[in-house]
Simulated scan of single mutants.
Amino acid sequence: MGMAKVWVVPEIQDQKLKKISLEMINLARRLGEVEAFLIGDGVSALAAELGNYGVSKVIVAEQADLKTYTTAKYARVLAEGIKREQPEIVLIGNTATGLDLAPRVAQRVGAGQISDVIDYVEGNFIRPIYAGKAFQKVSPAAYPLIVTVRPNVFPVAEATGGTAVVEKAEVSLTSDDLRVLVREVVRQVSSRPELTEADIIVSGGRAMKSGENFRILEELADVLGAAVGASRAAVDAGWRPHQDQVGQTGKTVSPTLYIAAGISGAIQHLAGMSGSKVIVAINKDPEANIFKVADYGIVGDLFEVIPLLTAECKRLRNVEQAG
């Protein structure tokens, strides 16, 4: 493929670029000439930031109606932008929003879609299949192509100090596109990072025995600056909200460090976290499935091991700060 025109569709939260946006730019720079299609309200200021990360052109689709995401509005605006500008490849985050948007846009523009991409090697996009037990190489046969990119897999693009040409896109929304109104977005405020973006995750399973017991995992997480996750068993028992669930029916995560406490390692859970760079498992059962994927295994009672781990991490942190 020559110099393809590659679009990144940045994901924005609180008028800031989410980390996945900068990860997609990194991949896009390997694929061709990088442009961005920015949708929102009052987002023009982000164009300079995108230029700084190596985006050559930013097309801004801006209107008050586009301040909050709804499927119909964003699908219309992005599909019309693609038809008009004809990029070969469009990168969208494999996030809750991206998974909603990508297939609808692909259908509207007659594009193929490759989902949950974790690498690009010699002209092939790589994506996991069979709950992460095998990898599929997909080579593009036709364009345009919509590609959803798994968060936390590609490094964040390095700043180039460049500037982007900024163009305004025409936005024409119909009353049909505006049928769904978002009255407000209610966010749970947490000092911990979001699961899919976290560098470190501490997860608990059935062996936690109760919701109150997750406090020991939260203490460890706060020392490490980590997010707290849970297995489906812990969520089904009502100990943690569904948004904390890691696995096939929860979130797919790719942290640098994943600590699994009292998780047996059902195939559905492994599907959600096997992309972690380093896995530490703590379980009383030496035969637990989780040990097959773990880089480090501790056979022991998590109620003894986790507090020791927390104390040791605190000690190391204090040594570091003193040094």
Rank of each mutant, 00 (worst) to 15 (best):
Leu145Pro: 14
Tyr120Cys: 10
Ile129Trp: 02
Glu158Asp: 10
Phe135Ala: 03
Tyr130Val: 00
Phe154Ile: 03
Pro155Val: 05
Val149Pro: 02
Phe154Met: 01
Gln136Asp: 03
Ala159Glu: 15
Val147Pro: 11
Glu158Lys: 11
Arg150Phe: 10
Ala157Cys: 13
Gly161Trp: 06
Ala131Phe: 08
Asn152Lys: 15
Glu158Asn: 09
Tyr143Thr: 14
Thr163Val: 06
Ala142Trp: 07
Lys137Asp: 07
Glu158Gly: 12
Gly162Gln: 09
Tyr143Val: 11
Ser139Met: 12
Gly161Asn: 06
Ser139Phe: 11
Ala159Arg: 15
Asp119Leu: 03
Ile118Cys: 10
Pro140Ile: 00
Val156Lys: 04
Ser139Gln: 14
Pro128Ala: 00
Ile126Pro: 08
Ser139Ala: 14
Val153Glu: 12
Lys137Trp: 05
Arg127Asn: 07
Phe125Ile: 01
Glu158His: 08
Arg127Asp: 00
Pro140Phe: 01
Ala142His: 13
Asn124Ala: 15
Ile126Gln: 05
Gly123Asp: 01
Tyr120Ser: 11
Gly161His: 12
Asp119Glu: 13
Tyr120Gly: 12
Tyr130Pro: 02
Ile126Lys: 10
Pro151Tyr: 08
Pro151Ile: 05
Glu158Val: 04
Val153His: 14
Gln136Glu: 10
Phe125Met: 01
Ala134Gly: 09
Phe125Ser: 00
Tyr130Cys: 00
Lys133Asp: 08
Ala134Met: 10
Val147Asp: 03
Val156Pro: 08
Gly123Lys: 04
Ile126Ser: 10
Ala164Leu: 09
Ile146Asp: 03
Ile146Phe: 02
Lys133Ile: 02
Leu145Glu: 02
Val149Ser: 02
Ile126Arg: 11
Ala131Lys: 14
Val121Pro: 04
Val153Met: 13
Val147Phe: 04
Ile118Asn: 07
Val149Trp: 00
Asp119Met: 04
Val149Gln: 00
Tyr130Gly: 00
